[in-house]
Simulated assay, not measured.
Amino acid sequence: MRVAMIVEYHGKGYSGFQYQENAPTVQQQIEKAIQSLTGQPVRIKAAGRTDAGVHALGQVVAFDTGSNYPPDTFLNALNARLPQDIAVREVYRVRPDFDPRRDAIIRLYRYTLLVSKVRSPLWRHNSHQVRPPMSLDTMRKAASLMTGTHDFANFGGPLEIPEASTVRRIYGIDLRPDEAFIQVEIEGNAFLPRQVRRMVGALVDVGSGRLKLEDIRKQILRAEDAPVARSLPPQGLCLVSVKYADFPPRYEE
């Protein structure tokens, strides 16, 4: 039986989602909880491999199990076994070929900017501080340049397969001011390593006047004189949701 779950976690205490031999990860904690419940070793698949310090509201994971526990039992029993910074929000039985990564069609990330001259101890692990003033209008113009299908090589980190395509489709970028914050939501079919953090870094640099709109055009066109897109810290980033053509995939006994 294949089980899919929607998982929320705070990334501060982890070296990313994906399993690592000598570092704590979200994947390790979830697999440990599942094995404790079922008595069977397990390896889960995830929709996104979030970096160290990155959070998630709607990470989607899936795994195979010989246990016949109903979804509610998995939900309650796993949450009783998981640490307080990880929670299973929903559990479904899904079709055997469901793949949370390959079947995903849209991923939504949110980056939280604190626009303030003074740091916030309360928000230090969930946002990145930038100093005012920030031109929201100019940031939105830059965001419109990034929307669509482009080669985002200048915004991505190293790839597992160096020759893999760096073309991605961005469906929309929404900048929403909220008191002292700017929430930057980016929706795309898939993302390169660190792409979202570098895209938001470019938006911040445009909003502060450090970069011009022409610099963003050069970055997207991969011009030789394009400025380097800097990556913002991980703590402001959150994987909000993952969308599928059919979710939960229909399960038939």
Rank of each mutant, 00 (worst) to 15 (best):
A226H: 06
L82H: 07
V240K: 01
M1Q: 15
I216E: 01
T65A: 07
S67M: 02
R2I: 08
P121A: 09
D151N: 15
K32S: 12
H125V: 01
M146W: 06
E185T: 15
T38C: 13
S15R: 13
M139W: 07
N22W: 10
E160A: 14
H55G: 11
Q235V: 04
I220A: 01
Q219Y: 04
A190P: 00
T65S: 15
G209P: 10
V167H: 03
Y19Q: 06
P248N: 06
L57N: 13
Q27L: 03
A33I: 07
H150K: 12
D215N: 08
P227W: 10
G11L: 03
I105G: 00
H125N: 14
Q40P: 00
S231L: 04
D97P: 02
A229R: 08
D97H: 09
M199I: 15
Y92H: 15
A226I: 07
L211F: 14
R93V: 05
P233K: 10
V115C: 13
Q129T: 02
F181R: 11
V167Q: 04
D51I: 09
Y14T: 02
M199N: 10
K32D: 05
V54T: 12
R110D: 04
N154H: 12
A164G: 02
L108D: 04
E160I: 09
L192R: 11
Q59N: 13
R250G: 06
E253G: 04
P70F: 07
A202P: 01
R95C: 05
G53E: 13
T50M: 04
R81E: 13
V115K: 07
A80W: 01
Q195W: 05
V3M: 10
K32H: 08
T166L: 06
T38W: 09
A56L: 12
A46R: 08
I216T: 04
A52S: 14
A164H: 04
